[in-house]
Write a protein that binds this DNA or RNA. Structure first.
Lengths: 252, 252
DNA sequence: CGTTAGATTGACAACTGTCAAAAGACGTGG
DNA sequence: CCACGTCTTTTGACAGTTGTCAATCTAACG
């Protein structure tokens, strides 16, 4: 029991803000299982900006979580243009795309220098079948990935560009908060062009939207450094507070 | 062995075009397991147009597949407006939303009278842990759900309304083909407003887009009845064939 | 046959995409 | 440490598309 809690402490420290923490530390875990899990995870492989974890068409054989840095996942439409499927901050799972066909539909590219943990899928499945609770936790993490996709779709159906941009910044702040970073002051790891493709806008529109937010005193942006000056107003704008309904009606 | 193949035949007939077929019929299945699976599925509960399979906030305790009819899944944004997350034809899984939190983020409403198969999640998990291969198959079906979400995002990032509409019809045709229906002639189960919210457009824009496609001889639409007169042209329009690049460059 | 919900069409303003140029940030090498 | 070149970002002007408001038309249903 003592050994177990030591291992637990080590795991916690090394994967402090890792989404796989939920995978690694469910109830009813014993020392042997812990050892198995520890061996499963290849830790902190450094990945340099521009490097890819996997490419489109590759068989998927692992899932990935960054412990530092940031990634984007990009797919290519039939017309040949790139489509930004998502951004991935430390602790957010990557590599589940193509779980349906067994082949990656996206490529994951590091936006800045990063560290990644890699978990071979086959071994993960094997261990999941043996560990009570781990299977459930795996489903849960996948579900969170589904949630993120729904949030993305939720961004894209907003018709006003400024609403999408505000919601994007708001959501990014929330995600930074979740990993212990300042939700009101952070450096964007992605370019305006990446943001634009993620939001389904022209990059000039993104730039103008940020400028507008700055003029209105909601944020302060110098290049990629963003400071959210008025979080409440940002949230209001993000949730369609401007443009139609009289401020706060319906819920809240 | 004889009994097994009989059961298999029965299963195939009853769930002929069901996405869960892939769950039910993996390799290495035996008679006992088959019986377990058969008991798992509550079959063909009739659901009338407008009825909901589940609501937002409910604990998720089952997944659903329609054997006939069609559904939409709708979520509500923080600003109170409804967001159309997806359409579900027969054989397409519903109910995975909220796998992350264990609580539904969407509600699933029948667009027309329908029949649904319901599979309790808890029992499914239990059986999945015992059946070699079933766990993998479960992941695969979830992956397909992820793929559909990515396709939806792919629709939404298109900037031109006509492109989204063409791609929507094209994709719908493909999905009808997959369940053995005519991909070039079908009745839309959803209203123009539903389509509009799914595509992130105004319903008038959808109506105009359909009219435009009809004027151009690509489709023939009378109310909800759609006939695709020129599938090749529709595919071209769907993949950005119009608007920029000189017809078919890059791939194809 | 009347009523109602859904769909189409028209007019107009606003937003956003496109093209183009300038300004700023960043890294490299002197 | 500064100068240079490149990439990114901002800003401007303008046209096109799309959203909004409003009226008409159609279809479904009682």
């Amino acid at each position: 029991m003592n050994a177990v809690s030591l291992d637990l402490a080590r795991l916690r420290r090394s994967c402090a803000h890792c989404s796989l923490r939920q995978l690694c530390l469910p109830g009813g875990i014993d020392a042997g299982a812990l050892a198995q899990l520890e061996q499963l995870v290849r830790r902190t492989r450094p990945v340099r900006r521009g490097e890819r974890l996997y490419r489109i068409g590759e068989r998927l054989n692992a899932v990935y979580v960054a412990s530092a840095g940031a990634f984007k996942t990009v797919s290519v439409s039939e017309s040949g243009e790139e489509q930004l499927q998502g951004f991935h901050l430390p602790g957010e799972l990557m590599g589940l795309d193509g779980l349906g066909e067994g082949v990656h539909r996206c490529e994951a590219e590091a936006l800045v220098d990063a560290n990644v943990c890699e978990v071979p899928l086959e071994q993960l499945s094997t261990v999941a079948l043996q560990l009570p609770g781990l299977h459930q936790q795996l489903l849960r993490v996948i579900g969170q990935s589904l949630d993120r996709d729904h949030d993305h779709a939720g961004l894209l159906v907003r018709r006003q560009a400024n609403e999408r941009i505000a919601l994007f910044l708001h959501g990014l702040g929330e995600r930074y908060a979740r990993i212990g970073e300042d939700p009101y002051r952070f450096r964007l790891p992605m370019s305006r062009e990446d943001i634009a493709r993620y939001l389904g806008l022209a990059l000039e529109t993104v730039s103008r939207g940020l400028t507008r937010l700055q003029e209105d005193g909601v944020i302060s942006a110098r290049g990629r450094l963003v400071e959210i000056a008025d979080p409440k107003e940002l949230a209001r704008l993000a949730h369609g507070g401007d443009g139609g309904e009289p401020a706060q009606r319906g819920r809240l």
